[in-house]
Design a protein around this nucleic acid. Structure first.
Length: 424
RNA sequence: GGAAGCGUAUCGAAGAGGUCAUAACGAGCCGCACUCGAAAUGCGGUUGCCUUUCGGGGCACGUGGGUUCGAAUCCCACCGCUUCCGCCA
């Protein structure tokens, strides 16, 4: 959520930044409502001041034995007027809130202005894509042939866009999760969290998934709960409506969770394999930072995710998303893209973003700076570290052998309990 | 799911229709004094939000309603916590 004061004071500047996202968004309506609200507020607050003043007099006058019936009658009428105005202010407040919740974050002024992912800027590459001297197979064929992935039965059990891991495949998935969590907790300083996989509406609003992206979410029938689309939601919301100590910042939290996405509007895209499913596993990193420190933390966050790919020996590149491609809540995002041989291109495997105070404002997370004493919103960041299904797919494809077997990457071997190669 | 009790500042907690909400009292935190330094002790400070013609004004006692001239206080609903009962991995 943007600061209404910032919009009020620099409407042109904010509007210009928002235009860079290719949104035809006008701030006129919210500015108009804000103006109307403040006028009504002054009016009703003057009446309330009058009420308070008179109410204080009443017991004194009674004590003196004076007749107060005329005053009480007057006050009754005033109370009626106040009630009406209060409702009007509240209605305007709700409209303003609704407007604000639907306005995306302003992009960082320094990132490339562009219309789509074609304008994204490659920052760096690591690793050399492997040259195959045999006919390579896609992970959905490799996995099925090795009997470690079963898409058909997952579809039978549930429906399309679900997958199932089996035997050494299930173990490999578990190994990937354990490796990532160990790296983040033991080497990168993160605290491991195992959060709820369902969240309430306030949490979804807090991180920006709602109210705008309802159709992307799975919602429960009998309660106002949602299946989490990413651990970002429960973890960022841990300290919703709380005040933190400055000495606790920056705060690093990591969580493994399944993620549930309706994938509305992506019919026909990436329909084979593990790339785009309704349920997938992910290890997420969430950071709370001080405002002046958040961009330095974004670089760290991105590096932490890169460390995982380096550790697994998977070639990747880092891309800075342009203004037209960053997410609703983000001010700046780096995507990590892993080399996927079957696609013959790099495929997104992590997204690392600085949300500045956009989410903190929605979820009301503040800290008390030692010097100033006045409460300030924290900055929130998060990044995948990494998407597990896609990592699994990348390992299968990049580590495949001519006979269809998969060599286990060195760093995962301790987690595989003696399995060095997956064969039939 | 049923019953009872309880939600007040960073924490514990008092208040039970108006003169106790810049919120008693205790703790914490910050500053000062004492000290070589620390602890202990003493003194002082310490809620947030909205609005403003920068003098102020308003709001908030879990949330939302109601009663009243006036509600932390009375009534209703919802949410959460605790205890007991039931059920359950």
């Amino acid at each position: 959520m943007l600061d209404i004061k910032k919009i009020r004071n620099n409407p042109k500047e904010v509007e210009e930044l928002l235009k860079r996202r290719n949104s035809e968004l006008s701030l006129d309506k919210v500015l108009e409502l804000d103006q109307a609200r403040r006028e009504k507020l002054v009016e009703v607050e003057n009446m309330k001041a009058e009420q308070n003043r008179v109410s204080k007099q009443v017991p004194l006058l009674k004590k003196e034995g004076k007749d107060v019936t005329a005053i009480l009658q007057e006050m009754k009428e005033l109370a009626e007027k106040v009630k009406v105005l209060d409702v009007e202010v509240k209605e305007i407040d709700e409209k303003i809130q609704e407007e604000l919740l639907n306005i995306p974050n302003t992009p960082n002024p320094d990132i490339t202005v562009g219309a789509s992912d074609e304008d994204n800027k490659e920052i760096r590459r690591w690793g050399e894509p492997r040259k195959f001297d045999f006919e390579l197979k896609a992970h959905w064929d490799l996995g099925v042939d090795l009997d470690i992935l079963d898409f058909e039965r997952a579809t039978k059990i549930t429906g399309t866009r679900f997958s199932m891991f089996k035997g050494a495949g299930a173990r490999l998935e578990r190994a990937i999760i354990a490796y990532m969590l160990d790296k983040h907790t033991l080497e990168h300083g993160f605290t491991e969290i195992s959060p709820p996989f369902m969240v309430n509406r306030d949490s979804m609003v807090g991180t920006g998934q709602l109210p705008k992206f309802e159709e992307d979410m799975f919602k429960l029938n009998q309660r106002d709960y949602y299946l989490i689309p990413t651990a970002e939601v429960p973890v960022t919301n841990i300290y919703r409506d709380e005040v933190l100590d400055e000495k606790d910042l920056p705060m690093y939290m990591t969580a493994y969770t399944p993620c549930f996405r309706a994938e509305a509007g992506s019919a026909g895209r990436d329909t084979r394999g593990l790339i785009r499913n309704h349920q997938f596993d992910k290890v997420e990193m969430v950071m709370y930072a001080k405002p002046e420190d958040s961009y330095a933390q974004l670089e760290k966050l991105t590096n932490f995710a890169e460390e995982i790919l380096k550790g697994l020996g998977l070639p990747y590149r880092v891309v800075e998303l342009c203004t037209g491609d960053i997410g609703f809540s983000s001010a700046k995002t780096y995507d990590l893209e892993v080399w996927m041989p079957s696609y013959n291109r790099y495929v997104e495997i992590s997204s690392c973003s600085n949300f500045e105070d956009f989410q903190a404002r929605r979820s009301n997370i503040k800290f008390r700076p030692k010097e100033k004493g006045r409460l300030e919103y924290i900055h929130t960041l998060n990044g995948s570290g990494l998407a597990v299904g896609r990592t699994f797919a990348a390992i299968l494809e990049n580590y495949q052998n001519e006979d269809g077997s998969i060599t286990i990457p060195e760093m995962l071997k301790p987690y595989m309990r003696g399995i060095e190669k997956i064969t039939l």
